[in-house]
Amino acid sequence: MRRQIPLAITFIGGVVMIIQYFIPHQISQEIYRGVLDWQMIVGGFVLVLGIGSLVTHHTEKVKRQKEGWGYSLVALLGLVMMAIAGLFFGGMASDKPFMQIFIYAQNPIQATMFSLLAFFIASAAYRAFRARSFIATLLLLAAIIVMIGRVPIGAKIWSPIRVISNWLLDYPNMVAKRAIGLGVGLGMLSTALKIILGIERSYLGGGK
């Protein structure tokens, strides 16, 4: 029973969501909107589990004074401070402590993490773009042409490069994306079907 009921819920949930797509009637629209809302709400609840897990993970470290426990303490402090600021000091208004911490602490770190990509994209390009084989050469040439073709200096160096780079993006690039997209579509469809039909049930724990 403990297995059958979840499998039944999955089946019904999946089939209802597929059928509603074909029914424009209002009832079907409401089910659709309702399910999306419910998913969001459940997502809100489980954040409690997430925070619980995070807190246990770090308090354990602090308690046992494991290596790096000081940093765990910093994480816990950050969490508690931010939560208190948000829940008791004026909520999410832009001039209140919660949003101030968000603007001056969370945002800059976020933007900087994002900007690390500029460095990593360079080091990845340097290491990976070697003409080791025919395929690697294709990768390398396409990357260089587009990279140069996208900036004004590219046209100064060799003006046709802009045209070639646009052509690469519009044709071979788009074509391959389409093939991958179709493959992904089919793979995802069959996996979704296996889930709905209960053929794929490893997410319930165990393969048997």
Binding site: A122, I144, I148
Partner: peptide, 22 residues
């Protein structure tokens, strides 16, 4: 834009040097 252009050039030059070395 100049920063953007120079950074692109630097990456491309690195790739070329890497290939010559290879």
């Amino acid at each position: 834009m100049p920063s953007q252009s120079i950074a692109h050039l630097v990456i491309v030059i690195f790739i070329i040097i890497g290939n010559i070395a290879f």
